[in-house]
Design a binder for these strands. Structure first.
Lengths: 220, 220
DNA sequence: ATTCGCAATAATATATGATATTTTTTATTT
DNA sequence: AAATAAAAAATATCATATATTATTGCGAAT
């Protein structure tokens, strides 16, 4: 898929962002330029470009003259992220359901199918593909809101979703059958063009996920 | 105030961002590194850091291997920005009204007072301080939502607000007395802890502003 | 003895100019 | 007019120099 990035800068960007989201770079840890230079084989200048990008997106904390840190995590921050996800995603979902055409439906059916397949594997105990699972989860949620007619909203949502994802990966415990059913409800409601039911299911989905993750975090 | 930035990078960031928002760098125009080097007296690497930051915030468009451009403007984009502002700012306003303490009130009173003073000057025909006027306008809107208990929401709002501001500066025609009264209504409703009235006034305020700006853009 | 303050030193971040690639423009040929 | 090749311009990347911050070690004061 997107293995070969045309430029050193964009590929290090992808890699560092990935490593932050998936916890390979621990929350709060110092990002020393020299260390990163070895790890990602890119020059300091290129790395600084990357870190500046990640800093404005909020994955990295930039401290003037003192360097860069992986954005720390906290229960409060997670709660804020989840509330924002509800706000943005529910709004986008409503418009999307109102405006979605045949392409939107087709894409949504495909996304849900792929998600459902891998969810069954996860339920069966195969946790070897958790990264792929989360990708399909993300693609399903994105497919739902794709027809919202706002590039600005979609790109804001993508960033928020990735931040939420980092917390999920941090604790990594699945909610199992429950979440699967919530996805199904959203999917059905969206195809049935029922924004009220779809939004309610989405809000519940996120709120339960939030509580689940908060509980898991407290036990860490 | 913030004239002396400790670092070349952050000061060029502020300057370029300012120049984009206030139209001194025209929408869609190419940002050539050499040209910027002369204009802002900073090296290409430093400039690239800055442009990457501005690109993830959406003020600059980065085209891989082909350089940077000032983000173009369009009626659709403005509409998206305005809708997002309504979504984020109304939500934040509601929470802020519910949670605001004495400090919040004090700060709000001060912000409204300053805004009102300069609005009177504007109405009297003195357009020499439009930049200061817009700063007070921004500070007032920020003061309203300051107590929303979400740093993430506040920082998202700041970015959206600046994008909206660019469009306002692009056409620069004031709505006059009308907007002044809307500010007053929001202010009174917020202090009276009436979220419904405050949100309605805010939404109207933004929607009328949007229409006003769209009309002015169409005539350009 | 332990803490505090103050150098000197080491480590790190910031900023620059030089080089390698790529894209765009111009010129030439079919 | 279209396609190709050479030249010019611009971007992407790097290695290095400068400035700042953090650390260490030493001596004075409590």
């Amino acid at each position: 898929m997107s293995q070969t990035a045309p430029t050193v800068g964009s590929s290090t960007y992808e890699r560092i962002k990935h490593d932050i989201i998936f916890g390979e770079l621990a929350p709060g840890s110092k990002l020393k330029l020299d260390g990163l230079r070895d790890r990602y084989s890119a020059s300091v200048s290129t790395l600084r470009e990357t870190l500046n990008r990640l800093a404005s997106e909020g994955f990295v904390q930039a401290a003037e003259q003192r360097g860069f840190f992986v954005r720390p995590v906290s229960a409060d921050d997670l709660t804020e992220i989840a509330e924002l996800r509800i706000l943005l995603e529910c709004s986008a979902l409503e418009t999307s359901i109102a405006c979605g055409d045949a392409d939107w439906e087709g894409n949504l059916v495909a996304a849900h199918h792929k998600l459902h397949l891998i969810e069954q594997k996860m339920l069966a105990g195969d946790t070897s593909q958790k990264e792929l699972w989360k990708r399909y989860d993300g693609e399903f949620h994105q497919a739902l809101i794709q027809a919202c007619n706002s590039q600005n909203l979609l790109s804001l949502h993508t960033t928020i979703f990735d931040k939420y994802l980092r917390y999920q990966m941090l604790v990594f415990t699945s909610r199992g059958q429950e979440a699967v059913e919530e996805h199904k409800t959203m999917f059905d409601a969206a195809l049935a063009r029922d924004p009220v039911r779809a939004k309610a299911a989405l809000e519940t989905h996120i709120r339960l996920g939030l509580e689940h993750t908060l509980t898991a975090m407290a036990a860490m």
